[in-house]
């Protein structure tokens, strides 16, 4: 099963579970959770079921194309369901079967891992799901987003698509993955990874990134103040990515790093609070 089929099967499967199949959000982000379809939509009382593929950019994980299973950008298949269905673990295990990962032939373990995104003021309780020792999914019951205690609780399931595909296609090297039956991951991303690794680790303009961070942070605050929640949230995402780029340059001290995280968190929290207020107001007006 090639990679694009894997994605298509998962999309079909989750659509059948009642999920809205969305396309990815067009900003650089470290995880599918940053997509407003998860961060904002997990707030508030309305039911929300969605699934989408998201490009996840982690500059720090770049390996100049030299590593067989690490990339600075890779794909996540993200599912968010609110409220969390009672049999969600079963639903998830069945999804693995649809992509040829039968749990009778594999060792599937839920290894406790409490997810936390300090930058988003978000935390949840859950597991890493291991298939034969390889972490392929993060399975989380959200508890807080933007510092707000959630009600109802959403469940977030994040598959690492390349990891899954490596297992399904029995490949040792990520670049050997078949994207379709003609092209491999190498054909599409090998050169891309190399160049981005060089940029992320060596070439990015630190002063410019720092200045952009300040600019977008200010912009976020102004937008929040004026009540433009969605544009403000985009500014938060941009700050987060700028922080990730700066972090790859290894210039942060421990406390400076924490300081940046706290700054992003404070604007993320404000956005979440304003968004929730808006949602509750709209619901009342209905």
């Amino acid at each position: 099963m090639n990679l694009q089929n894997t994605i298509m099967i998962l999309k079909k499967y989750w659509a059948a579970q009642g999920c809205l199949i969305l396309e990815s959000y067009d900003l650089e982000k470290g995880a599918g959770t940053f997509n407003p379809a998860t961060f904002l939509r997990s707030l508030g009382p309305e039911q929300w079921n969605a699934a989408y593929v998201e490009l996840s950019r982690r500059p720090i994980d770049g390996r100049y194309s030299k590593n067989t299973n690490r990339l600075q950008s890779y794909y996540q298949f993200q599912v968010i369901m609110k409220p969390a269905p009672k049999n969600i673990q079963q639903i998830y295990l069945k999804s693995l079967k649809t992509i040829n990962l039968d749990h009778k032939k594999h060792d599937i373990k839920f290894v406790d891992d409490n997810w936390e995104s300090p930058t988003l003021g978000a935390c949840g309780v859950g597991w890493e799901v291991w298939i034969d020792g390889m972490e392929v999914t993060q399975f989380t019951y959200f508890q807080q987003i933007g510092g707000i205690i959630l009600d109802p609780i959403s469940v977030e399931i994040t598959y690492g698509i390349e990891r899954l595909a490596m297992h399904i296609q029995n490949k040792d090297n990520i670049y050997d993955l078949n994207w379709n039956d003609k092209l491999t991951y190498r054909d599409i991303y090998f050169e891309n990874e190399k160049q981005w690794s060089i940029y992320n680790f060596e070439k990015s303009n630190i002063d410019m990134l720092k200045q952009h961070f300040i600019n977008w942070e200010t912009e976020a605050k102004i937008l929040i103040y004026d009540g433009h929640i969605y544009p403000a949230y985009d500014a938060v995402i941009k700050c987060s990515h700028l922080f990730n780029l700066l972090e790859a340059r290894k210039i942060f001290s421990v406390s400076e790093r924490i300081d940046y995280i706290l700054r992003i968190r404070s604007i993320a929290k404000l956005v979440a609070e304003k968004y929730l207020r808006l949602v509750l107001k709209n619901k009342k007006n209905k």
């Binding site: 594999h106 060792d107 034969d132 020792g133 390889m134 490596m166 040792d172």
Partner: peptide, 11 residues
């Protein structure tokens, strides 16, 4: 299968 999987991750 499982053995292959674990070996791959550790390798």
């Amino acid at each position: 299968n499982i053995k292959i999987g674990y070996e791959k991750v550790v390798a």
